[in-house]
């Protein structure tokens, strides 16, 4: 509490001026300060930065612009929430992840477009609401296009399998014909017909 010099230490003096000394400690400090000008000086020096800091004039804030920014941000949050709820209701985990992406891009856009303009006092809320709507629509459109993609993939697969089957069957039929024909030709003893009938083979 007291230094070797007999004066109060800075922490105690600071606590004293902050009203954070209680009971006997406060009484002892008060008694010492009454008789010691050195500690009184130190105490007022400790309080000086704080009272100067309180005198620093704060800027003029455009509170309404901030209100608009916050309102737009909340609308975006709510739109996000709805998109996520939709996805959960549909039981699609992948869409939830997409909504996360939309949220990220949405907030990046918020910083970019409304951030600085809102500061300058312009109305940023319309653009932000728009952004929120776009984010929600983006999630929905991605979901639609994912379905479309899956359908197209299934159709493609089916037609590929079909085509492959068709080609295979044709091949088999052709081979059968070769076998049948060559068998016939060989049996009939007309070997030259083999070359004439299948010139490309």
């Amino acid at each position: 509490m007291k230094r070797e010099s007999g004066h109060l230490d800075a922490e105690t003096l600071g606590a004293y001026i902050d009203g954070e000394l209680h009971g006997p400690a406060r009484q002892a400090a008060a008694d010492h300060l009454r008789v010691c000008s050195v500690c009184r000086e130190t105490a007022s020096a400790l309080g000086a930065p704080g009272s100067a800091a309180r005198q620093v004039q704060a800027p003029e804030w455009n509170v309404e612009a901030l209100v608009a920014r916050v309102e737009a941000g909340i609308s975006a949050l709510e739109a996000e929430g709805e998109a996520v709820n939709d996805a959960v209701a549909a039981g699609r985990r992948r869409t939830v992840e997409r909504a996360g992406v939309a949220r990220w891009t949405g907030s990046a856009g918020r910083e970019g477009s409304a951030g600085r303009e809102g500061l300058a006092g312009r109305e940023g809320s319309a653009g932000l609401g728009d952004l929120a709507g776009r984010a929600a629509r983006w999630v929905k459109s991605r979901r639609r296009s994912a379905l479309g993609f899956a359908a197209a993939a299934v159709i493609l697969l089916v037609s590929l399998v079909g085509a492959a089957g068709y080609v295979y069957r044709r091949e088999m039929i052709a081979q059968d014909r070769v076998l049948v024909d060559s068998h016939y030709i060989i049996r009939s003893g007309n070997a030259g017909a083999l070359l004439v009938s299948y010139p490309g083979r």
Binding site: P59, W61, V63, V67, V70, E71, I74
Partner: peptide, 16 residues
């Protein structure tokens, strides 16, 4: 959200 906006209006200056 309107009630919340009023809170924003009331307390933003000190927070800023």
């Amino acid at each position: 959200q309107d009630a919340y906006s009023e809170l924003v209006r009331r307390h933003s200056k000190k927070l800023l």
